[in-house]
């Protein structure tokens, strides 16, 4: 194993972690307001298709990301309305999004591009170094400069989220909604509005995470390209103990596992790569079993909030 392998692996880990960061932050914002949204897979899929189509039509990956954001919000509004206003079961409607949204994406793709086998490709987003016109040579320069806008945005969002939830009044109010909505309401916090806001943020971030896949990662859209990242993100939120920093570390770790697993598959070391694919899930179950649910996560998660109920 030479140095090149290690640097490439680490750089790939950062690339793999980026969509996870977006989607995990989406879930973090959702759960912090007491909404367990397991429909991330669906939201990311629709975001990835919207990102692909818009960046194809306009030639601008940035507009693609914006489209992914909007598509994510739009689809998540279904979940929001069902679970917040109609107090429906969050798990079932999350699953409904997971089945409905990818089917919609597949349908739109087939109708728009036909069922021909011709592969439509888009231009990917430029990295900072290539848009400035330099080619970084050493590892740290590549790590810091050879990244797309989305990567910087992801880390900026992590910092913002950490500050927001821990250092601002608004963030503490937001968390109160996820912990104990009735108490939050008596303090004058608009619980319903916070939950809708959470759903908008969740849809936007999950949609952007999906759009990352078609604007920064691969040049084409295929069905199932989200490939379970929605569920890994769910795992990352738990593994990261519901804090922005923890989520970031979890995503980097899972991104590393993913990057390593792909290399093992290609190079066929004889090591079973499936076990590396399992790591995020095994780690999450272990963390839950070891630490228990008592200290785990916002307390009102999964429970509907009915204002008139005493």
């Amino acid at each position: 194993m030479d140095m090149n392998f290690v640097t490439n692996l680490l750089l790939a880990s950062v690339r793999m972690a980026t969509p996870l960061i977006f989607i995990s932050l989406a879930e973090l914002y959702s759960q912090r307001a007491g909404l367990t949204n397991i429909g991330l897979e669906g939201l990311a899929t629709i975001g990835s298709l919207a990102g692909f189509m818009v960046s194809l039509l306009t030639g601008s990956p940035m507009l693609g990301v914006l489209a992914g954001l909007l598509a994510g919000i739009l689809v998540n509004m279904i979940f929001a309305y069902a679970t917040i206003s109609l107090c429906a079961e969050q798990i079932v409607y999350g699953m409904a999004i997971n089945i409905f949204a990818p089917a919609l994406a597949a349908f739109v793709y087939r109708v728009y591009f036909g069922s021909g086998s011709e592969l439509v490709q888009v231009k990917l987003m430029n990295t900072l170094s290539s848009s400035v016109g330099i080619t970084p040579s050493n590892f740290f320069a590549r790590l810091l400069l050879d990244q797309t806008f989305m990567v910087y945005l992801a880390y900026a969002l992590v910092v913002f989220t950490a500050i927001y939830f821990n250092r601002t009044k608004s963030g503490l109010n937001y968390k109160a909604v996820g912990e104990y909505p009735k108490a939050a309401a008596t303090l004058g916090i608009d619980v319903i509005r916070t939950k809708y806001l959470a759903s908008i943020i969740c849809g936007a971030l999950a949609g952007m995470g999906g759009a990352y896949l078609t604007t920064c990662y691969t040049t084409t859209y295929v069905d199932g390209n989200v490939a379970g990242r929605g569920f890994i993100a769910l795992a990352a939120v738990i593994f990261g103990r519901w804090s922005a920093g923890g989520v970031l570390l979890a995503c980097l770790f899972f991104g590393f596992c993913d990057a390593l697993q792909i290399r093992l598959q290609v190079m066929s070391f004889g090591l079973p790569y499936q076990f590396f694919q399992m790591i995020p899930y095994v780690a999450t179950v272990l963390v839950l079993a070891l630490i228990g649910m008592k200290k785990a996560g916002p307390k009102s998660c999964g429970k509907p909030y009915r204002r008139e109920e005493r």
Binding site: F231, A235, Q274, A296
Partner: peptide, 29 residues
């Protein structure tokens, strides 16, 4: 895990899905 530690069965069953699917991928190879 749910009845003893009150851990969400939703998360655990989802995680177990992927563990099994990957294990199956290993088994058939």
């Amino acid at each position: 895990l749910k009845s003893t530690f009150n851990i969400s069965e939703i998360i655990v069953t989802i995680m177990l899905n992927y563990i099994v699917i990957n294990f199956l991928g290993y088994a058939v190879r």
